[in-house]
Nucleic acid binder design. Structure first.
Lengths: 204, 204
DNA sequence: GTCTATAGTTTGATAGAC
DNA sequence: GTCTATCAAACTATAGAC
């Protein structure tokens, strides 16, 4: 009776191989650009030949897809591990900093997650799932502080995303736009009428 | 004595050929993506073979460079042709709409101008010149309405750019973020203390 | 200035032995 | 599951005839 155990062991090996390939793919993307990813290069880094990758991924785009899912899952986790201050404005600041830091830490990852850099690539529904979860969670988070209007949610997304893209475009590796996060969040908080930090949260 | 006239005629032909090639390059980029640009395809559209392009451009990146310059020059002109309302807030709105409309009209153009989509490509100083002029003009424009702080200028750039990128990422071809421009500009105007529209501009 | 010819790579993907 | 071998195609760029 070793059938089940063998299957389990095999599927673990398979999963480990997949992860190793994806890890190599990230490294290649970071060095040669997201569009500069090649199967040969990825395979070489895991001690394989290019055709062997097809035992683990159906195509090059399937690798992009897995990377997309991985990136959004990583962000989901990164957001979840933040412990947020009780005050809405302060919490919003922390979240904005979290997103900014994640999105400015890795250009190909940011391009894959948020920009349309690869001409043919569109994420599959499964690959897209974590991104949807993140957006749902953000909506719930903002609703928790009284921001329920869809336009207000979109405005927050655009505002923080704009800081990220401006950072990459005009000062990559610097802090020129990172320094504006608090100012931007406060501006937004005023616009959607979040209570000031000096206000008492318990009393109306 | 036909030397000068001949030279003039020849240089005009040359310039016309360059423009035709660039025009074809834009068409290819729009169809196959910015990174999907190929010399063969561009050449075919102007009735040439790929090697003939090297009589007009030194390399593929030289074509990207000319496109970059052309895009920013086109935006420079597009901004200049706007006639702006006298009131600062209204003028700022019009400018934001102008940028948004330009940047959401053509994805490869936007990617070339504002994102780092092509792994190896960096614009030359000459290609970059119109972009610098545009930023200088924006700074002067904002200074004219009392916004002189560098951070405030950067915040405006990030805010409007963020709406553009969110539009491309989450609702390409739609109006979901276009509808937020006025709200965003007003939010910004409040933050930098521009006078309200109802205020009298002549009196302090 | 445009052509043919071609060099010299590189690519994603498949077939079939082991 | 990984390999070798290979395909079919595409790429940028150069050389040299016309």
């Amino acid at each position: 009776m070793l059938g089940e155990a063998t299957i389990d062991w095999q599927s673990k090996r398979r999963e480990a191989a997949r992860q190793e390939i994806l890890s190599a793919a990230w490294a290649v993307a970071r060095e040669n650009g997201l569009a500069g990813l090649t199967l040969r290069e990825v395979a070489a880094r895991v001690g394989m030949r290019a055709p062997s990758l097809y035992s683990h991924f159906a195509s090059k785009n399937a690798i992009y897809d897995a990377m997309f899912e991985q990136a959004w899952s990583a962000y989901e986790e990164w957001v979840a591990t933040a412990d947020l201050p009780a005050h809405p404005r302060a919490a919003l600041r922390v979240r904005a900093h979290r997103f900014f830091r994640f999105a400015t830490a890795d250009l190909p990852r940011h391009q894959l997650m948020n920009l349309r850099t690869i001409p043919g690539f569109t994420p599959s529904p499964e690959g897209y799932a974590p991104a949807v979860r993140v957006m749902d969670e953000l909506r719930a988070f903002l609703a928790g502080m009284g921001v329920t209007d869809d336009g207000d949610v979109d405005l927050y997304v655009a505002l923080v995303g704009g800081l990220v893209d401006a950072q990459w475009a005009n000062d990559p590796g610097g802090t020129r736009y990172a320094r504006l996060i608090d100012r931007a969040v406060d501006m937004y908080a005023d616009a959607v009428h979040l209570p000031k930090v000096t206000d008492d949260l318990e009393e109306p």
